[in-house]
Every structure is written in structure tokens, then in C-alpha cells.
Amino acid sequence: MGGGVFKERFVEHSLSSFLAFLKDALLSEEVSLRRGFAQSLDPRIKILSFSFLIVAVLFSKSIPVLFCLYSLSIALACVSGIGLFFFLKRTWVFIPLFSLFIALPVLSGNFSPGEKLFALNLGHAAITVTREGVYVFVLFILRIAAMVSFAVLLNITTRHFSLLKALRVFKVPQAFVMVMGICYRYIYLFIGIIENALLSVKSRVGMVRNYKTGQRVAGWNIASLWIRSCRLSEEVYAAMLSRGYCGEPVLEESFRVKLKDWIWLLFTGGVLACGIKFSL
């Protein structure tokens, strides 16, 4: 058995486990049903306060401050019944996605001129790493990490329908909220379709044997997936209409702001104010 086959198996395996992960990461509501601090906040207050924190992160320019904010997000996760390892895994998956391509250039001397730490010699192009470059890089990564952490926290501790409803309170247009609501279902269906398509290809041809046929199957799939998923989302919408949906979800529980919510909002407002003050 050649290395190529091994590689294909590996790709296939990692693709399906990635899909499973994605489904879980985006759609599981399990965390939002646990009892914990973040879950107990009123969704409207939660959206507002987490926006405060994210803006504070955007403004702060010092590593210690960012470090504190990042620690705050981890502490929040811990008091919300989320395991530390689970949370780190969940957030750090997205961090490279956001950061790497933007952050790498600033490492090099071209963008951050300063004291030379060491130089990588890559044939014609030498990359000089400077102390300032490293500083900016760490700052950048920390900032992304803190932002992603807060965003993930907000997402996994709030039920999707509550989130949608709370958005309406902030005068986000109804059409937009509706589309988001459908998107949520749609992602799930879409991942399901990809999974099934993968399985059906596997059951028919054993596995994607060579690059050429693999490419053809993939090309065909993407086109048909697109059509199929459009059709499904239409049907989902029809199913919602059929049961009396008129564009705005009606929730069972009504939102109630408690004293705890106000204190928390005040605290995050304070963090934001400090963040802005120190950055100016």
C-alpha cells in the first residue's frame, strides 16, 4: 500500500472528523442548557456586555491589559460550567484562521523596523525578526484570542432562538434576523448533506482513488450540493410558515433583567471605559 493511499485515507478521515467538529461547534446547544453564570444572564444584557468587552479588547494596546481581559474570558468560561480544555480547544481552532495571515507580515522588519533579534535566511529572501515585531505579534495574537474567546462564549452560552430574539431588541431588521435563523438550520442541513455525499461516494467507489476522479466527484458535488441546499432551505422556510411563523420567533420565556445583570453590565461598561481611557 503506497503512501498516497495512506494520505487519502488520512484526508478522508480528517475531513469527516472536521465536519463532525464543525457541527458540534456551531450547533450544539448543550452548553447553553447548563447552569452557570453566563447562562443566567439576560440575553440582551449579555449581548451588550460582551460587545463592551470585545470593544475594550479592540482598544487596548498593552499586553498586560489584554492578558487580563483574556484571563477574564477564561474565568467566565470556568464559572459557566465549561471545561477549560474544551473551551481552549473551541477557541484556539478559530484563532489561527483569523490571525495567521494578518499577523505574520508584521513579524518581519519590513513592517516593524527595530532592533534585530535574529534573521531567517531563506535563499534570496531574508526575514529579519525584530523585537518590536515580536511584541506586535504577541499583542495581535492576544487580542484575537481574547476577542474570539468572548465571541465563542457568547455564542455557546446562549440559545440560538434567544440570541435571535435579543437581536430584535437592538433594532436589527427583522429580515436579517430571520435570515440568520434560517442560516442556523441551513448550516446543519448543509453539513449533513456533505457528510452523506462523502459517505455515498465512499460506498460507491470505495474511496476517492485518484486525483482526477476525486476532482470530478468533488466538482459535481459542489454544484449539486449548492442546488440541493437551496432547495432544502426553501423547504425549511415553508415548514416554518406552515406552522404559523410570520417572521418573528415567539419565545416561551420572556426576558427578565435582574440585579445581577445590571451589576455585570456596569462592570463591563467600566472595563470598556478603562480600556478606551488607557488607549488614548
Binding site: R159, G192, A239
Partner: peptide, 11 residues
């Protein structure tokens, strides 16, 4: 609906 999939869209 014929396809039960589309009718279940809540968590």
C-alpha cells in the same frame, strides 16, 4: 412534510 428533516429546525 414528506421530508421530516425540514420540519425540525429548533434546538
Amino acid at each position: 412534510f414528506q421530508n421530516p428533516e425540514v420540519q425540525l429546525f429548533c434546538p
